[in-house]
């Protein structure tokens, strides 16, 4: 955990130190980047692979890829609306939120909050389990753009405001207002061909509840370090 935080700080420091004098005038077409052009809609589609410790999920739900869709809409006064969907049928998480950015030469610093809703249901071997949850993700993001290459580092906190799990009609758990953990991401977006971009990211989460592993119904209380790699194609 401390290592991750140091890596995040080092990256931020390196980016700031390597600041270029050039003021970029390019239109920012990155979905995951800190700044979006006013009234421009961009979206991306890709996959995210999470590696959940095998001890927890055993042979059942490990290494299942999620489809990931992101959408961003630029607003005046440096505001943007953003939304994200992660889905693999059994587990679906929808996030939406607003962010504000502060441009600084080749850099953009963004602050924002996403509100998320998690819905999961699994019917296997007669089990009828489900989850629904409301989540909040405040974040800070530092972006660096140069020659149409967009690099972002992001730190986010995760809070569970309300979460219920069910086995059939029985409510198994009811969690309210709990700090769940932190996550750090590194994302690179660059042109792919024509107007398309590709995005590559790595995210390390350090959290108590890993939403991708909700069917495991973990009783043991532990904080897990979970890496996630994602790759997406961005459309203007």
């Amino acid at each position: 955990m401390r290592n991750l935080f140091l890596i995040f700080l080092v990256t931020m420091a390196c980016l700031v130190k390597a600041q270029s004098n050039e003021i970029d005038t390019l239109t920012h077409r990155g979905v995951l980047y800190a700044r979006h052009s006013p009234y421009a809609l961009t979206w991306s589609l890709g996959i995210a692979i999470t590696s959940i410790p095998r001890d927890i999920v055993e042979e059942e739900i490990n290494r299942f890829p999620f489809l990931q869709a992101d959408i961003a809409y630029g607003l005046p006064y440096n505001f943007s609306l953003v939304a994200k969907l992660n889905t693999m049928v059994l587990t679906n998480r929808l996030l939406s939120g607003i962010q504000w950015n502060y441009p600084l030469s080749s850099f953009d610093i963004a602050l924002g909050t996403d509100i998320g809703y998690l819905l999961g249901f699994v019917t296997i071997n007669g089990f009828d389990n489900s989850i629904n949850s409301w989540l909040v993700y405040p974040y800070i993001q530092c972006g660096y753009h140069h020659n149409e290459i967009l690099v972002s580092v992001r730190a986010e906190a995760e809070y569970i405001t309300s979460q219920q799990t069910f086995a059939g009609d029985i409510q198994v758990s009811d969690t309210r207002n709990r700090r769940n953990g932190l996550a750090f991401s590194l994302i690179i977006e660059q042109p792919f061909f024509h107007n398309q971009r590709c995005a590559l990211g790595l995210k390390i989460s350090y959290s108590d509840f890993v939403y991708q592993a909700w069917p495991a119904f973990e009783t043991f209380k532990r904080t897990l370090t979970v890496p996630e790699v994602f790759c997406a194609f961005t459309f203007p």
Binding site: I149, I188, Q190
Partner: peptide
Amino acid sequence: QPEYLLSV
């Protein structure tokens, strides 16, 4: 290897 930063 495209002209940009990342190759895939």
